[in-house]
């Protein structure tokens, strides 16, 4: 492993540029990942928000499913936000028949579980792992966590529903920390790289 970990950002579609900005602010030099060979050189990965159906098509079409699955099985740390969370989940309720998820974290989610865009919202979250002040969380057509397994750590809830979860090297959020200038959740994730 290189002295400064190389963090990749899955850049097939979505808000990947905002994650790249956040990682740069924290002193990293992130790599945009679009092709399978780019997975080999990274120590950790951020899977951004966007449209999960589009990402699945592009992951499949460009032979990323198998190598990414392998890196996940080998324990690569990954932070998935919104669509990224859907892709990392164990089960996706009312997804498509060909819905693909990597099962990297033992949570079940429902796509667009909070409703359509007119139901999107932002709210303050208490996240004990990062302390005060609260994290301003932006939920956009967000997935709802409907089940968490016994080894999943719930780091934050909104209205009693888990919205930030961690299990070993995998961290997921229903909301979009990349849409604010508060980088504490990225920092929290990167701390796990040692």
């Amino acid at each position: 492993m290189s002295p400064v970990p190389v963090v990749g950002v899955l850049a097939l579609q979505g808000a990947f540029a905002r994650h790249v900005d956040a990682l740069r602010r924290l002193g990293f030099d992130p790599v945009e990942v679009r092709r399978p060979e780019q997975l080999a050189g990274i120590d950790a990965l951020v899977m951004p928000g966007g449209e999960s159906t589009t990402m699945i098509k592009l992951l499949t079409g460009f032979d990323l499913v198998e190598p990414l699955g392998k890196r996940l099985a080998d324990g690569m740390p990954v932070f998935g936000t919104c669509a990224g969370m859907i892709l990392l989940a164990a089960n996706v309720l009312d997804g498509h028949q060909d819905q693909l998820c990597f099962g990297a974290i033992d949570v079940d989610v429902r796509r667009n579980g909070y409703g359509r865009q007119v139901d999107s919202f932002e709210a303050d979250l208490r996240v004990a792992a990062v302390g005060d002040p609260p994290v301003r969380a932006v939920f956009i057509r967000a997935p709802v966590v409907v089940r968490t397994g016994p080894t999943v750590e719930v780091l934050a809830e909104n209205d009693g529903v888990p919205v930030l979860c961690r299990q070993g090297p995998i961290m997921v959020s229903s909301f979009h920390p990349e849409l604010t200038d508060d980088d504490r959740l990225h920092q929290l994730f990167l701390r796990s790289l040692g």
Binding site: A11, L12, Q13, G14, A15, F16, A17, R18, G49, G50, E51, T54, C82, A83, Q117, V118, D119, S120, F121, E122, A123, D124, L125, R126, V127, A128, A129, P134, V138, F139, I140, R141, T148, G149, P150, T151, V152, E153, V154, L155, A156, E157, N158, D159, G160, P162, L164, H176, L179, T180
Partner: peptide, 30 residues
């Protein structure tokens, strides 16, 4: 699993500029 988070937030805001521009962010590259 047991939660270590606090109580839910009452400061919920719908249709903010960040929420509205945010969906456009999610469509990028598409």
């Amino acid at each position: 699993a047991e939660t270590n988070s606090g109580t839910p937030s009452p400061q919920r805001h719908d249709g903010t500029v960040r929420v509205k521009r945010g969906l456009a962010e999610m469509l990028k590259g598409g």
